[in-house]
């Protein structure tokens, strides 16, 4: 899947997300947003502004109550669970604040998990996972399990897992939130290195130091986008 020139990789068209039945709370209200290949973007905003809701929708882990989400031109709302799962697996890579590595698997096993069920040979899975781990500087730690690694290393394994499928969109949720400054800097350095004209990187954060790395900053408040700035590199 390569993005068609000019067409957004991911597009929200007047998307709303409401919770509750009797008392309806709008976490997102008629939000429109286009994410293009090459974007390096931060979504910021105070607590309760709708960042998590947005992340869930961008990652196809959730569906809008109203409006349309298109990924690479495909209306996500028209897909069944299998179709949406396939979409996540092929087009989106996730990085979470809590790493979410599978504890009983090695670094290699965790990364390979992203390559399962897609008709790859074992060798291909092994090679690609190893290459991804080398890319985040953990080529020597492939056999280690999460408990044997520091938080920074675990997050790097998670990044390797997110990029091993070569996704169009990398979604990161407070990727440095559980790390000390040294490890946070290292992780941000890796994110910088992942930038490519074919790929969009979206980080949800309330950490302005993280947001400062981003080229585009989307600010949210009360379920709406209140600012969308492009900062040209200094």
């Amino acid at each position: 899947m390569s993005p068609v020139q000019g067409q957004p990789l991911l597009e929200l068209d007047r998307v709303s997300r409401a919770y509750g039945e009797e008392v309806v709370v709008y976490a997102l209200r008629e939000v429109s947003l286009a994410i293009r290949a090459g974007d390096f973007m931060a979504i910021i905003g105070p607590s309760g502004s709708g960042k998590s809701t947005m992340l869930g929708l961008l990652g196809v882990l959730d569906l809008p109550s109203d409006g349309v989400i298109r990924i690479d031109g495909v209306d996500v709302g028209g897909l069944d669970d299998a179709g949406r799962s396939k979409m996540r697996g092929e087009s989106i890579g996730f990085v979470f604040q809590q790493f979410h590595l599978i504890p009983h698997l090695s670094a290699q096993g965790n990364v390979e998990t992203a390559l399962l069920y897609r008709n790859l040979s074992r060798k291909e899975r092994t090679d690609r996972a190893r290459a991804a781990l080398e890319r985040v500087g953990l080529g020597a730690r492939t056999d280690h399990r999460p408990v044997q690694m520091s938080g920074g290393e675990q997050q790097r394994v998670a990044i390797a897992r997110a990029i091993v499928t070569d996704p169009l969109l990398v979604l990161a949720d407070e990727p440095t939130g559980a790390l000390d400054t040294t490890n946070a800097a290292k992780v941000m350095e890796i994110f910088e290195s992942l930038r490519s004209p074919e790929r969009a990187i979206v980080m949800v954060t309330h950490d302005l130091a993280v947001a400062d790395h981003a080229e585009r900053r989307v600010s949210m408040l009360d379920g709406r986008i209140v600012a969308d700035d492009i900062r040209l590199p200094a």
């Binding site: 882990l61 669970d81 799962s85 697996g89 979410h100 599978i102 992203a114």
Partner: peptide, 16 residues
């Protein structure tokens, strides 16, 4: 549940 959540995020379907 965390393992299940991450597998779903990585593209494993409900049935898988």
């Amino acid at each position: 549940s965390s393992e299940i959540g991450i597998r779903r995020a990585l593209g494993h379907s409900r049935s898988t």
